[in-house]
């Protein structure tokens, strides 16, 4: 019985170390990705895949715009529509160099980040059926 306990403990430690390694690798990949895209997360309540999607979308669009010419509305539109179609309504997006906000968002549906010199706020709110009464 002692042998069995030792074996269980050994396996448990092995699994824990595997999980930790995976987390470390994921964090490193995320960090590398952010550095490469000049993205800095300021505040967040969003799964990693959605974050990466937002950063990639923002980066691609900024790269396609003329240098030093920021079209805030177009970036906001692109992000909002992509997230509405991919993750369901209703997403809202604010882009700019000087703004403050106070919002209520759905769980797991909020990210505030900077990319180059522009700030992006992307968040989701619940959508309820229209009241026909």
């Amino acid at each position: 019985m002692e042998g069995a306990e030792e074996e269980l403990e050994r396996r448990s430690k092995f699994l824990k170390s595997l999980i930790q390694k995976k987390k470390t690798i994921e964090q490193q990949e995320q960090h590398d990705h952010l550095q490469h895209n000049n993205v800095r997360v300021r505040a967040c309540d969003m799964p990693l895949p959605l974050q990466s999607r937002a950063f990639r979308c923002a980066r691609d669009l900024l790269d396609s715009m003329p240098p030093k010419k920021l079209d805030s509305k177009r970036l906001a539109l692109t992000l909002k529509k992509e997230f509405d179609s991919s993750y369901g309504p209703a997403w809202h997006c604010i882009v700019g160099t000087s703004f403050g906000s106070y919002v209520t968002h759905s769980l797991g549906g909020f990210v505030y980040f900077s990319i180059d010199k522009v700030y992006v706020l992307l968040f989701k709110t619940a959508v309820e059926p229209l009241d026909h009464s």
Binding site: K73, A76, K80, G96, S98, F99, G100
Partner: peptide, 10 residues
């Protein structure tokens, strides 16, 4: 949202 420079879509 309050500020002097922002665009948005919602």
């Amino acid at each position: 949202v309050v500020g002097s420079n922002f665009g948005c879509y919602f």
